[in-house]
């Protein structure tokens, strides 16, 4: 079965599985453990104009069916990325999504401008939803006008396909998605992590150095699916779904909820080869579910598309 996915502005993935930003480094880190050419794409860790130091440790904490992180978007800046990491990524046969971050609209614009001059970048992902940054970051993702401003500034600088990563930490994620669609976004990626915290009981203090952190992993999958399902019904542009995907069947759920492609993150820490396994399993799983091609799975559980008669039949199985 052909797993290829066609997305706006000519972005073509060999399959719908993309490594999620923040979980796969800047490219080379997992190279000796994972056959990267099998992946549909890689979204690199968030890139800012200048290096960001990140938050004080501890930066990660295990929770039931999930993890909390408070990395604070540590990165060595877009310039070092272009010189040090991009040559490696250019040699890798997969699509490169550059995740971009900033404290101000202008910082997002600067990173977009810099990356647009580099061969080897296939798409941008605008991160307006990181919960670990006090200024910028998530605050852009909680206000439709500010989110649109960031997207418009990025659009001004680039013809690359651009997706905007939206936050679950807001009452109406759909409003943010609509606002960035109007401002020129080609895709929506959803969702980022949820703000949470844990207490280190032994030391009587918050478990994370940054006090609060972003929750990811299977614990957030139902929330992610709900948001993807809502956004996919509202915007006309494709949705890239993510949040707690750990298995091939999880991928199918997101596709049915309306995601054209998915990102896989937290599970990679535990099982670095899980994305490869999903790519290998996907054709058979889709076929067994009665689909002839990947495209037919996308949105098949959305209102007006879901098949009531087959649900009736299921009762007699």
């Amino acid at each position: 079965m052909n797993l290829a996915v066609s997305l706006p502005r000519g972005l073509k993935l060999k399959n719908p599985i993309i490594a999620a930003s923040g979980t796969f480094g800047f490219g080379p880190e997992y190279a000796s453990f994972v056959d990267m050419s099998v992946l549909g794409g890689i979204s690199v860790k968030g890139l800012s104009p200048d290096p960001w130091p990140g938050n004080p440790p501890p930066r990660v904490w295990e929770t039931p069916m999930g993890i909390l992180n408070s990395i604070g978007l540590q990165n060595h800046g877009v310039e070092v990325f272009c010189q040090q990491d991009l040559p490696f990524l250019r040699e890798t046969d997969t699509r490169v999504v550059a995740n971009i971050i900033g404290h101000t609209v202008d910082e997002y614009r600067q990173v977009a401008a810099r990356l647009s001059r580099e061969p080897g970048i296939d798409a941008l992902e605008v991160n307006i939803s990181c919960p670990n940054i006090k200024e910028g970051g998530m605050s852009f993702g909680q206000n439709p006008d500010q989110a649109a401003q960031v997207m418009a500034a990025v659009r001004f600088e680039t013809d690359l396909p651009v997706m905007v990563k939206i936050s679950p930490n807001t009452t109406y994620p759909v409003e943010i998605a609509e606002a960035v669609e109007d401002a020129g976004a080609d895709m929506i990626s959803a969702i980022n992590t949820l703000v949470g915290m844990a207490i280190d009981v032994k030391h009587r203090r918050p478990a994370l150095g940054g006090v609060t952190g972003g929750l990811s992993g299977p614990a957030i999958k139902p929330i992610a699916l709900r948001i993807v399902y809502e956004v996919a019904q509202t915007v006309k542009i494709p949705v890239v779904g993510m949040g707690g995907i750990s298995s091939t069947m999880d991928v199918v759920e997101f596709l049915m909820a309306g995601a054209a492609a998915v990102m896989v993150g937290t599970i990679t820490f535990q099982y670095p080869r899980r994305m490869q396994e999903i790519v290998a399993e996907l054709p058979e799983v889709i076929t067994e579910l009665g689909f002839d091609c990947l495209q037919d799975v996308v949105g098949s559980a959305l209102p007006g598309r879901s098949n009531a008669s087959s649900m009736m039949e299921a009762e007699y199985e």
């Binding site: 453990f33 860790k45 990140g54 440790p57 990660v60 540590q74």
Partner: peptide, 16 residues
């Protein structure tokens, strides 16, 4: 020792 995520340098969790 530090609280660790990926173990291969990708996630930047286990810093000192």
């Amino acid at each position: 020792e530090q609280r660790m995520g990926c173990g291969v340098g990708a996630c930047l969790a286990c810093v000192v």
